[in-house]
Design a protein around this nucleic acid. Structure first.
Lengths: 340, 340
DNA sequence: CTGAAAGCGCTAACAT
DNA sequence: ATGTTAGCGCTTTCAG
């Protein structure tokens, strides 16, 4: 049973023209009830399923959006994806997902493939915020929504998390607890999240008149290993910090590992807040305080924006959403112990 | 710049026929070098990208495979997906992913949509192992590979993890450490993994002549909450178990949470082995022993099987792979303390 | 209410 | 080496 019936077969079996069949499968009305039933019956009998390729050729739309993420193994993205899919399904859109492994080259290939397939729009967390390689999409008039990382070289709808604010709140909290020697494990300053989280850190210090101490600023690369190393460096300091702010989830993990090995007591000897919730946060003792991002909402809004853009194209100003992260205070940050 | 150029535009600009252009974009050779260059130049100038829909109509193939998972938020699946994508990319295949949220109804919709789109094959971890809703695929002659969960109602290539063996090894390990009161937190007995892991548990007890004690068998649903509840039940027993085997990752997390709240000392008062590695495993103190599944390999092999099937269709026997999980002994299971 | 027919953009068989 | 042309299966005027 390998034969794929087409609209012709259905028409023949139902004794109508293919135009009528088309009307029925597209619910366009204007077909007598008996005729419709006859057609439906034929469709069922044959197991007819309409051919999307042929349909797309006429319609110039696929009801499909493409999603591009840099690393599907990072738990952040599946959660965003879940939000996107949910909203997309509601609007009868389908979602195709590809992961670039942070490679702009792969990303470009994927973009090209998405265009070939005629996706109606793209949601992307790009591997390269410059974004020149995404111009293809723009040239084809395919709407784009940038999620979590913005795109520099042209204007697109964007939904970001307020990284500055999240970092600011975390550091402010530490300051209000009496900390002054607050270290930051930075993300790459070539990425917006990396820069912005550092910015929030600086702003908080500034607002509370705490001078920035370069020794407490350690560069990391968002990888676990760099968080580990950074923590070791901080521990080696004569004048150790009393609190650490880590700029992302993986570095948090590295940091916690180092803390444990160094026997540098979390919560008591050194307070800690990390950016991004991590699975382990509530399993550690003390439980980790974190800045948590609304991943699901990020996905939902991204689809919302994309959908509007697909419907109204250019008759819409470019929009930038900035979602607020949530500071979840648990047990890893405590009032500073003053020594006098 | 909204106009999508087509093969005609390219042909006109390069002063050739569309057939020649087609030859070039498909690397079929038989075109004079200068001509080819002229065409390439025109393609570049116009920003031409070929239309997959039109191509598909002729070719009857899309170079695309569909992947269906029950829950993209479960970290298991993105890892499998990464393995699939890697292999697929090597063979120039594209991958489209959809998640069913464990709903067979959604799954059926997705299947239908995949067929509409003309995917060349499907890799699926089905939400309903019965599989009647997948017959559509079979009828259309679309190859299927089942991953992690088998399909009952017809024969397909399958790649599973040896759940019986994994559970057996875990429980055996506990037995050899002297445990006799070993509890299991079961997965749903309607799923193969749920059943098989229970089977492995029973087999191990049997082999070592330990009678099955119903009080130590708690039903869960693979969700975190059920692991939590199960642990509470076990703790409430007069004759508490000295070891717990949890049937999956999420229930492990629930279990560990409960353990902590109940102040039931992991490793000393109660030994533990869980099925599936979890992020937190090595952060806990003591570190969790687990049965770990080869997720990436699962994905790689699945694509391999699918690809062969796409190429050779029926001229291939149905194949069943059974990958061995790995028992990772860490610190959460200890020699039983005998009381006499 | 229904049908006939013109393509959508491409590939591939057949000419030249 | 290159061009001509017949569809692939569908949607959508335009007629009836």
């Amino acid at each position: 049973m390998e034969y794929k019936p087409n609209i012709q077969d259905v028409a023949k079996l139902a004794n109508v023209s293919i135009a009528t069949v088309s009307r029925v499968i597209n619910n366009q009305g204007g077909v007598r009830k008996e005729t419709e039933e006859r057609i439906l019956k034929a469709i069922n009998e044959l197991g007819y399923i309409r051919n999307a390729a042929a349909r797309t050729m006429k319609r110039k739309e696929t009801n499909t959006i493409g999603v591009i993420v840099p690393d599907i193994k990072n738990p952040f993205f599946p959660l965003v994806m879940a939000g996107i899919e949910q909203k997309a399904r509601e609007k009868q859109y389908f979602t195709i997902l590809s992961s670039t492994n942070e490679s702009p080259i792969v990303e470009k290939e994927i973009v090209k493939n998405f265009i070939e397939r005629g996706v109606d729009g793209v949601i992307i967390t790009t591997a390269n915020e410059n974004g020149d390689h995404l111009k293809l999409l723009q040239e084809q008039g395919i709407p784009i929504v940038a999620v979590d990382r913005s795109i520099k070289s042209f204007e697109v709808d964007t939904v970001l998390v307020d990284n500055v604010k999240g970092a600011y709140q975390a550091v402010q909290h530490l300051i209000l607890q009496g900390h002054e020697k607050i270290a930051i494990i930075c993300g790459p300053q070539t990425t917006t999240p990396g820069r912005d989280r550092f910015l929030g850190y600086k702003k908080a210090l500034e607002n509370y008149n705490i001078p920035l101490d370069e020794r407490y600023v350690i560069q990391g690369d968002f990888g676990e290993q760099s968080g580990y190393l950074a923590t070791q460096k901080l521990f080696a300091l004569d004048d150790k910090p009393t609190a650490i702010f880590s700029s992302n989830n993986l570095m948090t993990i590295g940091c916690v590992k180092a803390l444990e090995e160094l026997n540098w007591k979390l919560g008591s000897e050194v307070s800690f807040i990390g950016f991004d919730d991590v699975d382990i946060a509530t399993f550690l003792n003390p439980k980790l305080s974190v800045v948590s991002r609304p991943m699901y909402a990020l996905g939902e809004i991204a689809f919302q924006l994309l959908h509007e853009r697909i419907c109204f194209k250019e008759n819409l100003p470019k929009r930038k959403y900035l979602l607020s992260p949530e500071l979840k205070i648990r047990q890893s940050c405590r009032l500073v112990k003053t020594l006098f």
